[in-house]
Simulated assay, not measured.
Amino acid sequence: MWRNLASNLFTLMVVLLIAAAAAVAWGKREYAGPGPSEVAQCVQVAPGASLNAVSQQLAEQGAISSAYVFRTGADYAGKSRDLKFGSYMVPPGASMEDIVGTITAGGPSTCGTEVIFRVGVRENNVILRDINPATGAYEDIARHNPADGAVPEAIAQAAEQADARLRFAVAEGVTSWQIVEGLKQAAFMSGEVAEVPAEGSLAPDTYEVDAGADRTALLNEMQARQTAILQREWDARPFGLPYASPEEALIMASIVEKETGIAEERETVASVFVNRLESGMRLETDPTVIYGVTGGEGILDRGLRRSELDTTTPYNTYRIDGLPPTPIANPGVAAIRAALNPAETDYIFFVADGSGGHQFSRTLEEHNAAVARWREIEAQRGEATDSPVQGDG
Rank of each mutant, 00 (worst) to 15 (best):
T326M: 09
P287W: 10
A384G: 11
T363D: 01
S245W: 09
K258T: 14
F188L: 00
D148A: 14
L230Q: 03
A236R: 11
A158D: 05
T175N: 02
S254R: 03
A244K: 12
E259P: 03
L300H: 09
A379T: 15
T104S: 00
M96K: 05
T317V: 01
F239R: 08
I229F: 07
K184P: 00
T216W: 01
G48D: 10
E284D: 07
F85M: 11
E114Y: 11
R118A: 05
E123D: 06
G357N: 14
E153C: 09
V293G: 01
R167A: 07
F273Q: 02
G35K: 00
L202R: 00
T113G: 05
R266A: 15
I64T: 03
S37Q: 01
G120S: 08
E172C: 03
E221P: 07
T110A: 10
G280L: 00
Q57G: 04
L241W: 14
R276Q: 07
I348N: 02
S307H: 06
G280C: 02
K84E: 13
I131S: 00
A253P: 01
A46I: 09
P342V: 09
R143M: 15
W234R: 02
T135P: 04
A77V: 08
T312V: 03
R302D: 06
H358L: 13
D82S: 14
D214C: 09
D310T: 13
D163N: 13
T294D: 12
T175K: 10
A147Y: 07
I377T: 15
G332N: 02
E123N: 05
A186W: 04
E264Q: 14
H358E: 11
E30V: 04
G393M: 11
Y207R: 04
A22T: 13
A249P: 03
S87Y: 04
S271R: 01
T311G: 02
S176F: 08
V196I: 15
T102R: 08
V15A: 10
A147I: 07
G382P: 08
F85N: 11
G182S: 04
P324E: 08
A21T: 14
L241M: 08
S361A: 15
G78W: 04
V333K: 07
A20E: 07
G200W: 11
E257K: 05
R362P: 02
K84A: 08
P47M: 07
L309S: 03
V371T: 02
